[in-house]
Computed example of a mutant assay.
Amino acid sequence: MHDLPADVSEAELREALLKWGVRSVSLAYAPVGFGDYHWSARDDEGRRWFLTVADLANKPYCGEGTTAAHAGLLAAMDTAGALSAAGLDPVLAPLPTLDGARLHRLGERYALSVQPWVDAPSGAFGQRLTARERADVMRVLASLHRSAPPAPAPVLPPGLPGRRRLEAVLRGADDGWADGPFAGPARELLQERAAGLRDRLEEFDRRVAALPTGAGALVVTHGEPHPGNLLWGPDGGFRLVDWDTCGLAVPERDLWHVALREDGGFDAEALSVWAEESGRTPDPSALEFYRLRWDLDDLCAFLDVFRAPHGRSADTEASWGWLRETVARLVDGGR
Protein backbone atom coordinates (compact mmCIF):
# COMPACT_ATOMS: atom_id res chain seq x y z
CA MET A 1 0.00 0.00 0.00
CA HIS A 2 1.20 3.50 -0.78
CA ASP A 3 -1.03 5.20 1.79
CA LEU A 4 -0.06 4.83 5.44
CA PRO A 5 -2.73 3.76 7.94
CA ALA A 6 -3.99 6.90 9.64
CA ASP A 7 -4.25 5.35 13.09
CA VAL A 8 -0.98 3.38 13.44
CA SER A 9 2.01 5.43 14.59
CA GLU A 10 5.69 4.62 14.52
CA ALA A 11 5.74 5.07 18.30
CA GLU A 12 3.10 2.35 18.58
CA LEU A 13 5.15 0.07 16.34
CA ARG A 14 8.31 0.61 18.38
CA GLU A 15 6.43 -0.22 21.57
CA ALA A 16 4.94 -3.35 19.98
CA LEU A 17 8.38 -4.51 18.81
CA LEU A 18 9.40 -4.86 22.45
CA LYS A 19 7.19 -7.97 22.44
CA TRP A 20 9.84 -9.49 20.14
CA GLY A 21 12.71 -8.10 22.22
CA VAL A 22 13.49 -5.62 19.44
CA ARG A 23 14.39 -2.11 20.62
CA SER A 24 16.15 1.06 19.50
CA VAL A 25 15.00 0.76 15.91
CA SER A 26 14.69 3.15 13.01
CA LEU A 27 11.68 2.54 10.79
CA ALA A 28 11.21 3.07 7.06
CA TYR A 29 7.83 2.64 5.40
CA ALA A 30 7.81 0.20 2.46
CA PRO A 31 5.04 0.97 -0.07
CA VAL A 32 4.73 -2.56 -1.43
CA GLY A 33 1.88 -5.02 -1.89
CA PHE A 34 -1.83 -4.44 -1.54
CA GLY A 35 -4.05 -4.68 1.52
CA ASP A 36 -1.40 -4.70 4.26
CA TYR A 37 1.13 -2.10 5.39
CA HIS A 38 4.86 -2.75 5.64
CA TRP A 39 7.92 -1.23 7.28
CA SER A 40 11.57 -2.19 7.52
CA ALA A 41 13.20 -1.86 10.94
CA ARG A 42 16.88 -1.58 11.82
CA ASP A 43 18.39 -1.47 15.30
CA ASP A 44 21.59 0.18 16.50
CA GLU A 45 23.59 -2.99 15.82
CA GLY A 46 22.48 -3.15 12.17
CA ARG A 47 20.02 -6.04 12.59
CA ARG A 48 16.92 -5.77 10.40
CA TRP A 49 13.33 -6.99 10.35
CA PHE A 50 10.36 -6.70 8.00
CA LEU A 51 7.09 -5.62 9.63
CA THR A 52 3.57 -6.26 8.35
CA VAL A 53 0.54 -4.50 9.76
CA ALA A 54 -2.62 -6.33 8.71
CA ASP A 55 -5.91 -4.47 8.41
CA LEU A 56 -8.28 -6.92 10.10
CA ALA A 57 -11.31 -5.00 8.84
CA ASN A 58 -10.33 -5.93 5.28
CA LYS A 59 -9.41 -9.61 5.58
CA PRO A 60 -12.68 -11.47 4.95
CA TYR A 61 -10.72 -14.54 3.81
CA CYS A 62 -9.43 -14.80 7.39
CA GLY A 63 -12.86 -14.13 8.90
CA GLU A 64 -15.71 -11.63 8.82
CA GLY A 65 -15.18 -8.92 11.43
CA THR A 66 -11.96 -8.00 13.19
CA THR A 67 -12.23 -10.65 15.93
CA ALA A 68 -12.76 -13.54 13.51
CA ALA A 69 -10.14 -12.15 11.10
CA HIS A 70 -7.59 -11.98 13.92
CA ALA A 71 -8.24 -15.61 14.84
CA GLY A 72 -7.99 -16.72 11.20
CA LEU A 73 -4.82 -14.73 10.58
CA LEU A 74 -3.23 -16.13 13.73
CA ALA A 75 -4.02 -19.67 12.56
CA ALA A 76 -2.33 -18.91 9.23
CA MET A 77 0.76 -17.45 10.93
CA ASP A 78 0.97 -20.43 13.29
CA THR A 79 0.67 -22.79 10.32
CA ALA A 80 3.63 -21.12 8.60
CA GLY A 81 5.59 -21.24 11.84
CA ALA A 82 4.92 -24.94 12.26
CA LEU A 83 5.96 -25.67 8.67
CA SER A 84 9.21 -23.78 9.17
CA ALA A 85 9.89 -25.51 12.49
CA ALA A 86 9.33 -28.87 10.77
CA GLY A 87 12.23 -28.08 8.44
CA LEU A 88 10.45 -26.81 5.33
CA ASP A 89 13.18 -24.41 4.23
CA PRO A 90 11.23 -22.47 1.56
CA VAL A 91 8.81 -21.21 4.24
CA LEU A 92 9.80 -17.77 5.54
CA ALA A 93 7.53 -17.64 8.58
CA PRO A 94 6.83 -14.74 10.94
CA LEU A 95 8.90 -14.70 14.10
CA PRO A 96 7.32 -15.50 17.48
CA THR A 97 7.24 -12.92 20.24
CA LEU A 98 9.06 -13.59 23.50
CA ASP A 99 5.77 -15.15 24.66
CA GLY A 100 5.54 -17.38 21.57
CA ALA A 101 2.81 -15.47 19.69
CA ARG A 102 3.28 -14.79 15.97
CA LEU A 103 0.80 -11.91 15.89
CA HIS A 104 0.33 -8.87 18.11
CA ARG A 105 -2.92 -6.93 18.17
CA LEU A 106 -2.68 -3.18 17.57
CA GLY A 107 -5.98 -1.84 18.83
CA GLU A 108 -9.23 -3.21 17.43
CA ARG A 109 -8.43 -2.98 13.74
CA TYR A 110 -4.80 -3.97 13.15
CA ALA A 111 -2.33 -6.74 13.95
CA LEU A 112 1.47 -6.79 13.64
CA SER A 113 3.68 -9.65 12.48
CA VAL A 114 7.47 -9.54 12.22
CA GLN A 115 9.54 -11.43 9.66
CA PRO A 116 13.29 -11.90 9.61
CA TRP A 117 14.98 -9.67 7.09
CA VAL A 118 16.32 -11.62 4.11
CA ASP A 119 18.75 -9.82 1.83
CA ALA A 120 17.32 -11.28 -1.38
CA PRO A 121 15.42 -9.76 -4.29
CA SER A 122 11.70 -10.38 -4.66
CA GLY A 123 9.61 -10.58 -7.77
CA ALA A 124 6.59 -8.49 -8.68
CA PHE A 125 2.95 -9.38 -9.12
CA GLY A 126 2.30 -10.07 -12.81
CA GLN A 127 5.95 -10.85 -13.52
CA ARG A 128 6.43 -13.71 -15.99
CA LEU A 129 8.66 -16.52 -14.83
CA THR A 130 11.07 -18.32 -17.12
CA ALA A 131 10.51 -22.02 -17.81
CA ARG A 132 13.31 -22.91 -15.38
CA GLU A 133 11.89 -20.62 -12.67
CA ARG A 134 8.43 -22.14 -13.10
CA ALA A 135 9.88 -25.61 -12.70
CA ASP A 136 11.80 -24.55 -9.57
CA VAL A 137 8.71 -22.99 -7.99
CA MET A 138 6.71 -26.11 -8.82
CA ARG A 139 9.27 -28.16 -6.89
CA VAL A 140 8.90 -25.80 -3.92
CA LEU A 141 5.12 -26.18 -4.07
CA ALA A 142 5.38 -29.95 -4.32
CA SER A 143 7.45 -30.02 -1.12
CA LEU A 144 4.82 -27.86 0.57
CA HIS A 145 1.94 -30.00 -0.68
CA ARG A 146 3.66 -33.19 0.48
CA SER A 147 4.14 -31.85 4.00
CA ALA A 148 2.03 -33.05 6.91
CA PRO A 149 -0.67 -30.47 7.72
CA PRO A 150 0.16 -28.72 11.02
CA ALA A 151 -2.55 -28.72 13.68
CA PRO A 152 -3.31 -24.96 13.31
CA ALA A 153 -3.89 -25.20 9.53
CA PRO A 154 -7.42 -23.99 8.74
CA VAL A 155 -9.59 -25.74 6.16
CA LEU A 156 -10.37 -23.11 3.51
CA PRO A 157 -13.85 -23.33 1.98
CA PRO A 158 -13.82 -22.57 -1.74
CA GLY A 159 -16.68 -20.07 -1.54
CA LEU A 160 -16.38 -16.29 -1.90
CA PRO A 161 -16.43 -14.40 1.43
CA GLY A 162 -17.82 -11.25 -0.21
CA ARG A 163 -20.38 -12.95 -2.43
CA ARG A 164 -23.47 -11.73 -0.58
CA ARG A 165 -22.44 -8.09 -1.01
CA LEU A 166 -21.52 -8.62 -4.66
CA GLU A 167 -24.86 -10.24 -5.48
CA ALA A 168 -26.72 -7.41 -3.76
CA VAL A 169 -24.93 -4.86 -5.94
CA LEU A 170 -25.64 -6.87 -9.10
CA ARG A 171 -29.35 -6.90 -8.17
CA GLY A 172 -29.29 -3.15 -7.54
CA ALA A 173 -30.33 -3.84 -3.95
CA ASP A 174 -27.25 -2.61 -2.04
CA ASP A 175 -27.76 0.78 -0.39
CA GLY A 176 -24.82 0.48 2.01
CA TRP A 177 -22.40 2.65 0.05
CA ALA A 178 -20.44 5.33 1.92
CA ASP A 179 -19.17 8.54 0.36
CA GLY A 180 -16.13 8.44 -1.89
CA PRO A 181 -15.11 9.52 -5.40
CA PHE A 182 -15.24 5.97 -6.81
CA ALA A 183 -18.42 4.74 -5.08
CA GLY A 184 -20.80 5.87 -7.82
CA PRO A 185 -18.64 4.80 -10.78
CA ALA A 186 -17.94 1.40 -9.18
CA ARG A 187 -21.61 0.71 -8.52
CA GLU A 188 -22.56 1.78 -12.03
CA LEU A 189 -19.85 -0.37 -13.61
CA LEU A 190 -20.94 -3.49 -11.75
CA GLN A 191 -24.61 -2.97 -12.51
CA GLU A 192 -23.90 -2.32 -16.20
CA ARG A 193 -22.01 -5.62 -16.43
CA ALA A 194 -24.31 -7.48 -14.04
CA ALA A 195 -25.56 -10.06 -16.55
CA GLY A 196 -22.05 -11.17 -17.52
CA LEU A 197 -20.89 -11.25 -13.91
CA ARG A 198 -23.88 -13.37 -12.88
CA ASP A 199 -22.92 -15.81 -15.65
CA ARG A 200 -19.44 -16.13 -14.15
CA LEU A 201 -20.92 -16.72 -10.69
CA GLU A 202 -23.00 -19.55 -12.17
CA GLU A 203 -19.85 -21.00 -13.72
CA PHE A 204 -18.16 -20.64 -10.33
CA ASP A 205 -20.89 -22.75 -8.73
CA ARG A 206 -20.58 -25.45 -11.38
CA ARG A 207 -16.84 -25.64 -10.89
CA VAL A 208 -17.14 -25.74 -7.09
CA ALA A 209 -19.32 -28.84 -7.46
CA ALA A 210 -16.62 -30.49 -9.60
CA LEU A 211 -13.71 -29.91 -7.18
CA PRO A 212 -11.85 -33.06 -6.05
CA THR A 213 -13.08 -34.51 -2.76
CA GLY A 214 -12.21 -37.47 -0.60
CA ALA A 215 -9.30 -38.55 1.54
CA GLY A 216 -6.06 -36.80 0.67
CA ALA A 217 -7.68 -34.20 -1.61
CA LEU A 218 -6.67 -31.31 0.65
CA VAL A 219 -3.06 -30.24 1.20
CA VAL A 220 -1.31 -27.29 2.80
CA THR A 221 -1.46 -24.45 0.29
CA HIS A 222 0.14 -21.02 0.31
CA GLY A 223 -2.66 -19.37 -1.63
CA GLU A 224 -0.74 -16.70 -3.53
CA PRO A 225 2.61 -18.12 -4.76
CA HIS A 226 3.01 -15.48 -7.47
CA PRO A 227 6.39 -13.78 -8.04
CA GLY A 228 5.50 -10.92 -5.68
CA ASN A 229 5.61 -13.44 -2.82
CA LEU A 230 8.86 -15.10 -3.89
CA LEU A 231 12.38 -14.29 -2.76
CA TRP A 232 15.19 -15.31 -5.12
CA GLY A 233 18.00 -17.00 -3.21
CA PRO A 234 21.69 -16.69 -4.19
CA ASP A 235 21.67 -20.36 -5.24
CA GLY A 236 18.66 -19.82 -7.52
CA GLY A 237 16.22 -21.33 -5.04
CA PHE A 238 13.04 -19.64 -3.86
CA ARG A 239 11.49 -18.81 -0.51
CA LEU A 240 7.80 -18.07 -0.03
CA VAL A 241 6.67 -15.07 2.02
CA ASP A 242 3.29 -13.58 2.96
CA TRP A 243 1.49 -16.54 4.54
CA ASP A 244 -1.78 -14.88 5.56
CA THR A 245 -3.68 -16.84 2.89
CA CYS A 246 -2.31 -20.28 3.73
CA GLY A 247 -4.54 -23.20 4.64
CA LEU A 248 -5.87 -26.56 3.53
CA ALA A 249 -7.29 -26.74 0.01
CA VAL A 250 -6.74 -28.70 -3.19
CA PRO A 251 -3.24 -28.08 -4.62
CA GLU A 252 -4.60 -26.39 -7.76
CA ARG A 253 -5.23 -23.36 -5.53
CA ASP A 254 -1.47 -22.78 -5.78
CA LEU A 255 -0.64 -24.38 -9.10
CA TRP A 256 -2.62 -22.12 -11.40
CA HIS A 257 -0.57 -19.07 -10.33
CA VAL A 258 2.65 -20.63 -11.53
CA ALA A 259 1.36 -22.57 -14.54
CA LEU A 260 -0.64 -19.75 -16.16
CA ARG A 261 0.87 -18.70 -19.49
CA GLU A 262 0.62 -15.28 -21.06
CA ASP A 263 -1.81 -16.63 -23.67
CA GLY A 264 -4.21 -17.77 -20.92
CA GLY A 265 -3.41 -21.48 -21.12
CA PHE A 266 -1.59 -23.57 -18.54
CA ASP A 267 2.01 -24.71 -18.92
CA ALA A 268 1.85 -28.50 -19.22
CA GLU A 269 5.60 -28.84 -18.75
CA ALA A 270 5.56 -26.95 -15.45
CA LEU A 271 2.57 -28.96 -14.25
CA SER A 272 4.38 -32.19 -15.15
CA VAL A 273 7.27 -31.16 -12.88
CA TRP A 274 4.85 -30.79 -9.98
CA ALA A 275 3.13 -34.08 -10.84
CA GLU A 276 6.45 -35.94 -10.84
CA GLU A 277 7.53 -34.40 -7.54
CA SER A 278 4.17 -34.78 -5.78
CA GLY A 279 2.91 -38.06 -7.20
CA ARG A 280 -0.43 -36.46 -8.09
CA THR A 281 -2.06 -35.33 -11.33
CA PRO A 282 -3.37 -31.76 -11.56
CA ASP A 283 -7.09 -31.42 -12.20
CA PRO A 284 -7.76 -29.09 -15.20
CA SER A 285 -11.20 -28.08 -13.93
CA ALA A 286 -9.77 -27.17 -10.51
CA LEU A 287 -7.09 -25.03 -12.17
CA GLU A 288 -9.80 -23.14 -14.06
CA PHE A 289 -11.88 -22.84 -10.91
CA TYR A 290 -9.14 -21.17 -8.89
CA ARG A 291 -8.24 -18.86 -11.75
CA LEU A 292 -11.91 -17.76 -11.87
CA ARG A 293 -12.12 -17.55 -8.10
CA TRP A 294 -9.11 -15.24 -7.99
CA ASP A 295 -10.82 -12.67 -10.22
CA LEU A 296 -14.16 -12.93 -8.42
CA ASP A 297 -12.44 -12.61 -5.05
CA ASP A 298 -10.56 -9.54 -6.28
CA LEU A 299 -13.85 -8.11 -7.50
CA CYS A 300 -15.33 -8.53 -4.02
CA ALA A 301 -12.24 -6.94 -2.44
CA PHE A 302 -12.39 -3.86 -4.68
CA LEU A 303 -16.12 -3.62 -4.01
CA ASP A 304 -15.41 -3.48 -0.27
CA VAL A 305 -12.84 -0.72 -0.84
CA PHE A 306 -15.32 1.47 -2.71
CA ARG A 307 -18.35 0.73 -0.52
CA ALA A 308 -16.38 2.02 2.48
CA PRO A 309 -15.50 5.69 3.07
CA HIS A 310 -12.52 6.56 0.87
CA GLY A 311 -10.76 9.45 -0.79
CA ARG A 312 -8.76 9.85 -3.96
CA SER A 313 -5.25 8.49 -3.47
CA ALA A 314 -2.62 6.40 -5.22
CA ASP A 315 -4.16 3.25 -3.72
CA THR A 316 -7.77 4.02 -4.65
CA GLU A 317 -6.74 5.18 -8.14
CA ALA A 318 -4.91 1.87 -8.62
CA SER A 319 -7.87 -0.08 -7.20
CA TRP A 320 -10.25 1.63 -9.65
CA GLY A 321 -8.03 0.62 -12.56
CA TRP A 322 -7.76 -2.96 -11.29
CA LEU A 323 -11.53 -3.15 -10.78
CA ARG A 324 -12.17 -2.17 -14.40
CA GLU A 325 -9.55 -4.64 -15.64
CA THR A 326 -11.02 -7.43 -13.53
CA VAL A 327 -14.57 -6.80 -14.72
CA ALA A 328 -13.43 -6.70 -18.34
CA ARG A 329 -11.48 -9.94 -17.92
CA LEU A 330 -14.44 -11.69 -16.28
CA VAL A 331 -17.07 -10.52 -18.75
CA ASP A 332 -15.14 -10.10 -21.99
CA GLY A 333 -12.54 -12.84 -21.53
CA GLY A 334 -8.84 -12.65 -22.33
CA ARG A 335 -5.86 -12.39 -20.02
Results as ranks from 00 to 15, higher is better:
residue 4 L to V: 12
residue 7 D to T: 05
residue 7 D to Q: 13
residue 7 D to V: 01
residue 13 L to I: 12
residue 15 E to W: 01
residue 16 A to M: 08
residue 18 L to D: 03
residue 19 K to Q: 13
residue 23 R to N: 10
residue 33 G to H: 06
residue 36 D to I: 01
residue 41 A to L: 08
residue 42 R to C: 14
residue 43 D to E: 13
residue 43 D to N: 14
residue 44 D to S: 11
residue 44 D to A: 13
residue 45 E to S: 12
residue 46 G to Q: 13
residue 47 R to P: 02
residue 48 R to K: 13
residue 50 F to L: 12
residue 51 L to N: 12
residue 62 C to W: 00
residue 65 G to E: 08
residue 66 T to W: 01
residue 67 T to K: 08
residue 70 H to C: 07
residue 74 L to Q: 15
residue 75 A to D: 12
residue 85 A to H: 03
residue 87 G to Y: 08
residue 87 G to D: 15
residue 88 L to A: 07
residue 95 L to F: 04
residue 100 G to F: 03
residue 107 G to R: 01
residue 109 R to C: 03
residue 113 S to K: 11
residue 114 V to H: 12
residue 115 Q to I: 00
residue 120 A to M: 10
residue 121 P to C: 02
residue 122 S to R: 14
residue 126 G to V: 00
residue 130 T to P: 08
residue 139 R to D: 14
residue 143 S to E: 15
residue 143 S to C: 04
residue 144 L to N: 10
residue 156 L to P: 05
residue 158 P to F: 01
residue 159 G to D: 15
residue 160 L to P: 04
residue 160 L to C: 10
residue 163 R to N: 02
residue 174 D to E: 15
residue 182 F to Y: 15
residue 182 F to T: 07
residue 186 A to M: 01
residue 187 R to F: 01
residue 190 L to N: 10
residue 191 Q to H: 03
residue 191 Q to R: 14
residue 192 E to K: 10
residue 192 E to C: 04
residue 195 A to L: 09
residue 196 G to F: 05
residue 199 D to C: 03
residue 199 D to N: 09
residue 200 R to W: 04
residue 203 E to T: 11
residue 203 E to H: 00
residue 206 R to K: 06
residue 207 R to E: 04
residue 209 A to N: 05
residue 210 A to S: 14
residue 213 T to V: 07
residue 215 A to F: 02
residue 217 A to H: 07
residue 218 L to N: 13
residue 218 L to Y: 01
residue 219 V to D: 13
residue 219 V to F: 12
residue 222 H to G: 09
residue 222 H to T: 06
residue 227 P to H: 03
residue 228 G to R: 10
residue 236 G to Y: 05
residue 237 G to W: 00
residue 241 V to P: 03
residue 241 V to K: 08
residue 242 D to N: 12
residue 243 W to F: 06
residue 244 D to A: 11
residue 245 T to I: 00
residue 245 T to Q: 11
residue 247 G to D: 09
residue 251 P to W: 06
residue 252 E to L: 02
residue 254 D to G: 01
residue 255 L to K: 01
residue 256 W to N: 03
residue 265 G to E: 14
residue 273 V to K: 01
residue 274 W to A: 09
residue 274 W to V: 07
residue 275 A to M: 09
residue 276 E to D: 13
residue 280 R to Y: 09
residue 284 P to T: 00
residue 285 S to Y: 02
residue 286 A to L: 00
residue 287 L to E: 02
residue 290 Y to H: 15
residue 293 R to K: 15
residue 298 D to H: 07
residue 304 D to Q: 07
residue 307 R to T: 10
residue 307 R to L: 05
residue 310 H to L: 08
residue 310 H to E: 13
residue 311 G to A: 04
residue 321 G to W: 05
residue 322 W to V: 04
residue 324 R to Y: 00
residue 328 A to L: 05
residue 330 L to C: 04
residue 330 L to M: 11
residue 335 R to Y: 14
